[in-house]
Design a protein around this nucleic acid. Structure first.
Lengths: 344, 344
DNA sequence: ATGAAAGCGCTAACAC
DNA sequence: GTGTTAGCGCTTTCAT
């Protein structure tokens, strides 16, 4: 069952022209006489003709659509990044198709394959926390398929990349805690497969080192599902606070991790409540928390925009692109109550 | 530039068969000899053959994909609903294409047209707050195109619909405030174009009526952009608290509206702080707020699931579907501190 | 059991 | 300036 859409053929028949003439008239070819052109255009308008993008994709092997793969749209960072992606894509004439990997490498692969076979013209990817083997993506990129990595990137692939300055973001957050007088700063982060994990971890460690605080591996907890499983975070927090000597501050490395961790802390009350807290998150609600929460905020919208600009320029480039850039955008340290030393 | 994908033609050539034989072998037709079948299947496997979905869509006028149009994915209700949609769609073999209207009726229309012309097999729509004229959608539905409305529905179209019980949700929220002793309960809501606005408003009014409290139109504020524009909400809150006699409680009718409103209240301090508060929102962070915020929570995931089940059954139905159901799922009133009467 | 050919909607090289 | 034709990848009728 099809929904009676007008095709070029219908117009041609109605106007006693050939399909090619109609096609040419529609796209304003100079070879067509003004009268015919007018005739066709008006009729098409009247019949509400719309070119069939599927036929176009099949013919031209392109779709004027770009595919996006993120782990989770219910994540402030990603929904803001997607807004940035759409803002650029739409006024360059691209549609945006959003898919989620839910931090699963299989799902990520399925999504990528589906998007590619649907002839998206390029891909914007933030890797799942499970992904360590990028060979599939690598093959794609070697065949010249335009891919831009953002947020969670990888050096296994040589292409354009856009991320926040995770290292400095973590460094400044940690240093801020140190300046506040915290001594035993815990770090809760996700899988070390992720570039963002490694960068933030390094920033944390280097800040400690700068201030002559020894890194204590017991104060670093890895939640490999990045907050997708609450239990994992709960165990991490419990582990952190079980020993006699407890951390006096927590620094979390991700959106979900931060909010889940705050929830657990709130629930557990007691000693934990008193620890300082700062986390990477793009929530707009941090102000509303009790206490208001200090955060490292990423320029999510701008990251989305920048990645999309690079992608569309790759797509539209005549010659294969061979030199790539990695854009690193500064993060924003927003200090609220949660990371201040309490005077009691 | 295409990415060297194997086509049926390639296989046919390599195996000295016709494309039709290969096609049939691939789909396991009984007319093909076991040997040929085996040969083809193995070769296809080896070459990593994947049918081209675009060609299939063009041929079959269907795509095994469903389109989703929501106002904003950066909204807890919608991202949860989308998770529900995906959970059903994927194991019925459908892909999900997500688009956002950003509460703009033009954008909504563009998205719908794009999805339809891309041959999605059906549409899951939550209307934008600007949408009042559904004639385009109506045409679609009259041609037999499967559409299911969810959350923000309309009686202009006779099809399957799934929503939360907005009326009762609002009724109970309001009644709860009344039981707490609040007398001047304000209601901040969005455009009356939206079904959810009207239903929640009615629930609010009826609860007041039941308890013999006169409805005061000055206590009802309409933010036509549903919280997309902060200013609008700010003006509403200011209007509410400018008069000498101020409201003693606020009941907000939407996700964004609720959180923005809380932000404004927090910022303004003073008298407003003391008002009771409850709002429709699906945020998981309400517990973390100060004070913890009472909410009306919608079964977003289940709404998404249910809508998708109805849609796929419509898509797969042999005969045109003529009787439709409207599913109404109960909301969940979660009482925390913000809506309790303070004893001071 | 297999092949040839048409057709889904569109464009473009090649006539005339 | 306009028409004819082939082809994008696939399925399917119709021959054989």
């Amino acid at each position: 069952m099809k929904f009676e859409v007008v095709t070029i053929k219908d117009i041609a028949k109605a106007l006693n022209l050939s399909t090619s003439t109609v096609s040419r008239a529609l796209r304003g070819s100079y070879e067509i006489s003004p009268e015919t052109k007018k005739l066709v255009l008006e009729y098409a308008e009247r019949m509400n003709y719309r070119p069939n993008p599927i036929a176009l994709s099949l013919k031209e092997q392109r779709s004027r659509a770009i595919g996006v793969v993120v782990s989770e749209i219910a994540n402030n960072f990603f929904s803001q990044a997607i807004a940035g992606i759409e803002s650029i894509a739409y006024n360059r004439g691209y549609h945006v198709i959003i898919t989620q990997s839910h931090e699963s490498k299989e799902r990520e692969l399925v999504n990528i394959q589906h998007l590619v076979s649907r002839s998206v013209d390029g891909l914007l990817i933030s890797l799942s926390s499970e992904t360590s083997d990028l060979s599939y993506l690598q093959q794609l990129y070697e065949k010249g398929f335009p891919v831009v990595l953002f947020d969670r990137i990888s050096n296994q692939i040589d292409t354009h990349k856009v991320t926040a300055d995770n290292y400095m973001g973590a460094f400044h957050a940690t240093e801020h805690l140190i300046y506040q007088g915290f001594k035993r700063i815990a770090h809760i982060t996700s899988s070390t497969h992720l570039s963002i994990t490694r960068e933030r971890l390094q920033g944390y460690k280097d800040a400690l080192a700068k201030h002559h605080i020894a890194v204590n591996e017991n104060l670093i907890k890895y939640c490999n599902h990045g907050g997708m499983m609450i239990d994992e975070v709960e165990v991490a927090v419990e582990d952190l606070f079980r020993p006699k000597i407890k951390p006096d501050a927590i620094f979390t490395a991700g959106d979900r991790l931060s909010t889940i961790c705050l929830g657990i802390i709130k629930q557990k009350q007691g000693a934990i409540r008193k620890a300082g807290f700062i986390g990477f998150t793009n929530t707009n609600l941090a102000d509303l928390f009790s206490p208001p929460v200090s955060v490292v905020r990423q320029p999510a919208f701008e990251i989305g925009q920048s990645a999309t600009e690079l992608l569309t320029s790759m797509i539209e480039s005549k010659r294969p692109v061979t030199t790539f850039e990695t854009k690193v955008l500064p993060t924003n340290l927003i200090i609220r109550e949660s990371s201040l030393q309490q005077q009691d």
